[in-house]
Design a protein around this nucleic acid. Structure first.
Length: 913
RNA sequence: GGGCGGAUAGCUCAGUUGGAAGAGCGCUGCCCUUACAAGGCAGAGGUCACAGGUUCGAUCCCUGUUCCGCCUACCA
């Protein structure tokens, strides 16, 4: 047998691509439906098809892969279903930018050719992120890759739309919606990000119609919308104004007179002037107030948020004012209006005022409330059951702190605007008969506006004949659906719905959803609603919400700040395993992940440590192995097996609890500080001496424990574990499909672990002594060991060889009263004494200082314990075992202290002599 | 405005029935000891944000305060 020669440092780049290809070729991640295991399924939160992997994905995907690999190794029928979404607005924006660079525009191209271009772009860039995912080692079933615009998924979207419409849960109506004047589309409420800004509160005089000398002062942050005011509101209980309710106001700069109404909802007595202008076409609150008072809605802005001349004329704006304002954008219009008001002596004052503006979550343009006909999902009937399943625990949200967040949002949920005025997406399956809707289909320039009141025919396919008039000329609604509408169906559309496929039967409901908080509402809530509505069951049992990844300073990563950590660069530099392990170890619940490159470097070193442990093993495994019964194996073997089983136990229970951080740290601790630091060192004598009687059994334990450890670690670091596993004794073709270790509690030996603790403590004292006496590590040291406890003293005797080897010295385990009288540095801890032989020429200063410090420390602790035990309340009220423990501690401490003092005295005596 | 979370070593964070303060990184000192210098060994470093309360005893439970995040909201 030849020993594979492993290089001295681990080189991930030489290893990772090889296994990535191997796994995919072997199709290990493609489960068969009839796999006997209990299903475990995760659907991936689909990233944007034309995007690339960022560190947020890396975290999200690493955690999912850990769960999936773990469950697969446990023998579950495991499906991790990958895919991407079409990200309507974002993708369309990207393609439009590319067109612009070519001097083209989407309008010039036309809808069909534009969509072709988007598909082309998807074909070019769509594989980028998939390949990056493979680089990260993701064990997805790539055969089942899905895309939200696939034929099958599109069919699901149409099916859902039609059924919701038929159930009265989708309607079309003219509402005030959030409009992005750059993307030129409607947005849903949650696609608007609010940002606090410094604004100005303008106080404007409105003269009364029947008494122009008297004015009512209104306060507003948006004076440019005043031309569309259709009323002024005051509080009905406000003694200043209540007599004015019912009277009329002359709206400045227009020819209109508008009523003064009383409204206790809109008006806050304390704020501003107590009088509020109502502009129903440009403000959400005003819209509702307008509904309450039956006010007309006068829009002033066009779809680009520019003041429109025709609309202003319709609103009775003075024609010279209208001319001055026409085509101005919001900000400029505001300046102009304020100037006009000032000129007319109508501006009373302006106050600084903090306010929130809404911005488009895709392009950060300030959104405008915009009056337009849109499609909505009536959400309440869908939300109610989605609230119930979480309340009843049929869906668990982890960490559970987010439950209230979810419930709060769901209870206040508003109807969902699902139509988008873009081209890339699922076009709404609604047609309008041209003859029946003649009055409602208004053609202007290249586009046709479908007014409110038009009667759509909603169907899975284009109708051939109008059921009302028999005409066969139709116009299809040009709008597409919100991307999240299709994402909401993801857990079942990807499994084949609306067909009743075997996959659907086997894997729905899925097991766990892993996602960031940022899309809890966008996505998770909507999947729950849609899953319940169309599958009659929850889409997943557990929702695990992880934190957002920030930079080392806690700042959100963004390209403009230049603080992004690129996972591809990181993987290239440190390896995918190091990145994965870092992210897992930092995934503490409820905390943001602050990622600094040094952390990744640290775990790269960890990978290297593992690599070298494997090199060590391979170097010495070349010899006979004997599987002796555990009880007959040498002490180090029994100890490491005990520790390994405890580690298996902990890792498994932490994974069950989604504590990736704790699982990772337990693995790190075990591998580095137990396996490498102690076990490997302890067995060197047995391995390095070819004739050592323990050789064969030690080699067996070494091989077994290393192999098991690799399987235990594999979900976290799939590449290096596969590489090592393949070179050490093993059975099977790939570690990825081996069984996950299960803890054998009979192998956990507290007695052996206790004995090890004694060994470790003794070696610790010897090493400390070495440093205190300036003994170089290479120079052998002679020392005595004793323990006041008879049993422990006896056990130390049994550890004699290990003590000598680990401390590089010669040891005598004999009662301390038999130790030579002088020339010893005695160190003490919990009844254990170590005496190092001191040569004459050594500087004892450090040693004396150390002893002095320890005596002082002991004194402090002794008096603390004394005081506590002397307290009658303590002895009468504290539990007996606590009291015993305190007494015991005081006893050892006092004993240790006495020994330290005598050690100190002896050293001083030596100095004196 | 409301809600949630956080404040523990220089940094990032663990720390559940309340009973002697932990890890990783960084730092200091000594070591190229044949698995590993991407390493080994030994150390230093903390009134657990502040003020009260409950308790024999509080990092932990309660109240308040300050500061920092995030989510959410119509104070024009």
């Amino acid at each position: 047998m030849t020993v594979p020669q492993l290089s001295k440092t681990y080189d991930p780049k030489a290893v990772e691509p090889r296994w990535s290809r191997f796994w995919i070729e072997k199709r290990y991640f493609h489960p068969s439906i009839d796999h006997p295991g209990e299903p475990y399924c995760i659907v991936i939160p689909p990233p944007n098809v034309t995007g690339s992997l960022h560190v947020g994905h890396a975290l999200n995907h690493s955690l999912q892969d850990i769960l999936i690999r773990w469950r697969r190794m446990q023998g579950r029928n495991t499906l991790w279903l990958p895919g991407t979404d079409h990200a309507g607005i974002a993708t369309q924006n990207v393609v439009e930018k590319r067109l612009l660079a070519e001097g083209l525009s989407r309008e010039a191209l036309g809808r069909d050719r534009f969509i072709e271009r988007v598909w082309q772009w998807k074909a070019e860039s769509g594989n980028t992120i998939i390949n990056q995912q493979r680089q990260l080692g993701e064990s997805c079933d790539w055969d089942r890759l899905r895309f939200t615009m696939d034929e099958g998924l599109s069919r699901a979207v149409i099916e859902v739309f039609v059924r919701l419409y038929e159930d009265g849960l989708i309607y079309r109506g003219e509402r005030l919606i959030n409009w992005c004047p750059r993307c030129l589309t409607a947005l849903s409420d949650i696609e608007v990000e609010h940002e606090e800004v410094k604004g100005t509160l303008y106080h404007i005089k409105y003269p009364l119609a029947d008494d122009p000398a008297t004015t009512l002062v209104v306060a507003t942050t948006r004076p440019e919308t005043m031309l569309g005011d259709t009323a002024v509101a005051v509080h009905p209980d406000d003694p200043r104004y209540r007599h004015l309710i019912g009277k009329k106001i002359r709206l400045p700069l227009t020819e209109r007179e508008i009523p003064i109404v009383g409204d206790s909802i809109l008006v806050d007595l304390e704020f501003g002037t107590g009088a509020v202008k109502i502009t129903p076409a440009h403000d959400f609150n005003d819209y509702e107030a307008g509904e309450r008072h039956g006010l007309p809605r006068l829009a002033l802005f066009d779809h680009r948020a520019l003041l429109d001349h025709a609309l202003m004329m319709k609103a009775g704006v003075d024609s010279d004012v209208a001319s001055a304002l026409a085509t101005l954008p919001v900000q400029k219009a505001r300046t102009t209006i304020v100037q006009l008001l000032t000129d007319h002596g109508l501006l009373v004052k302006r106050d600084d005022h903090r306010m929130a503006v809404g911005k488009c979550y895709r392009c950060k343009t300030v959104v405008e409330p915009y009056l337009s006909p849109q499609w909505f999902v009536k959400i309440q009937p869908l939300a109610d059951p989605a609230i119930k399943v979480v309340e009843e625990g049929r869906i668990r949200i982890i960490p559970e702190g987010w439950v209230n967040n979810y419930l709060g949002w769901m209870r206040n949920i508003k109807d969902w605007c699902i139509s988008r005025q873009i081209w890339w997406g699922h076009q709404i399956p609604a047609w309008y008969c041209r003859s029946c809707n003649d009055r409602y289909l208004i053609a202007q320039e290249a586009t046709t506006t479908i007014l409110q009141g038009a009667r759509p025919i909603v169907a899975k396919q284009a109708p051939s004949q109008c059921p009302t008039c028999g005409d066969s000329r139709f116009m299809r609604d040009p709008d597409v659906l919100d991307t999240w509408f299709s994402s909401a169906l993801w857990p079942f559309s990807t499994l084949g719905w609306p067909d009743q496929t075997p996959e659907l039967k086997r894997y729905y409901p899925t097991s766990t959803l892993v996602t960031g908080l940022d899309i809890l509402f966008f996505w998770v809530a909507r999947m729950i609603m849609m899953g319940l509505k169309f599958m009659g069951d929850v889409p997943f049992r557990d929702v695990y919400i992880h934190a957002l990844v920030r930079d080392a300073e806690g700042q959100k990563m963004s390209k403009s700040k230049g603080n992004v950590i690129d996972p591809l660069h990181v993987m290239d530099k440190y390896g995918a395993d190091a990145l994965r392990f870092t992210l897992a170890s930092m995934a503490s619940p409820g905390r943001d992940v602050k990622l600094a490159e040094e952390r990744i470097e640290g775990y790269r070193n960890f990978a290297n440590k593992i690599w070298n442990a494997a090199r060590f093993a391979l170097m010495y495994l070349n010899g006979p192995r004997t599987a002796t019964p555990l009880s007959e194996r040498p002490f180090p073997d029994r100890w490491i097996v005990s520790r390994l089983n405890r580690t298996i136990q902990t890792v498994s229970s932490e994974l069950e609890a989604y504590r990736f951080d704790r699982a990772a740290s337990v693995l790190y601790q075990f591998i580095w500080h137990e396996y490498c630091d102690w076990y490997v060192e302890l067995i060197k004598p047995a391995l390095q001496d070819a004739s050592h009687p323990n050789g064969p059994t030690t080699r067996q334990t070494l091989a077994d424990t290393l192999e098991t450890t690799m399987r235990l670690l594999h979900p976290f670091m799939p590449f290096i574990t596969e590489e090592i596993w393949q070179t050490i004794p093993h059975e099977g073709d790939s570690i990825a499909v081996q069984s996950y270790p299960t803890a054998d509690v009979t192998k956990i030996a507290p007695g052996v672990e206790q004995e090890f603790a004694l060994l470790e403590q003794t070696i610790g004292l010897v090493r400390t002594g070495r440093v205190l006496l300036n003994h170089p590590p290479g120079q052998p040291v002679s020392f005595f060991v004793a323990h006041v406890d008879q049993d422990l003293h006896h056990r130390l005797r049994g550890l004699h060889h290990h003590l000598a080897h680990m401390s590089r010295g010669s040891v005598a385990v004999i009662p301390s009263n038999e130790w030579p009288a002088g020339k010893l540095l005695r160190l003490v801890a919990e009844g254990l004494s170590v005496g190092l032989v001191v040569s004459n020429d050594v500087d004892l200063g450090k040693a004396l200082d150390r002893l002095t410090d320890q005596i002082a420390e002991a004194d402090k602790e002794v008096s603390r314990l004394d005081a506590k035990l002397a307290n009658p309340d303590f002895s009468s009220k504290a539990p007996p075992e606590v009291i015993t423990e305190h007494r015991e501690r005081l006893r050892t401490l006092t004993r240790d202290r006495a020994l330290l003092v005598s050690s100190h005295e002896q050293l001083q005596a030596m100095l004196g002599s």
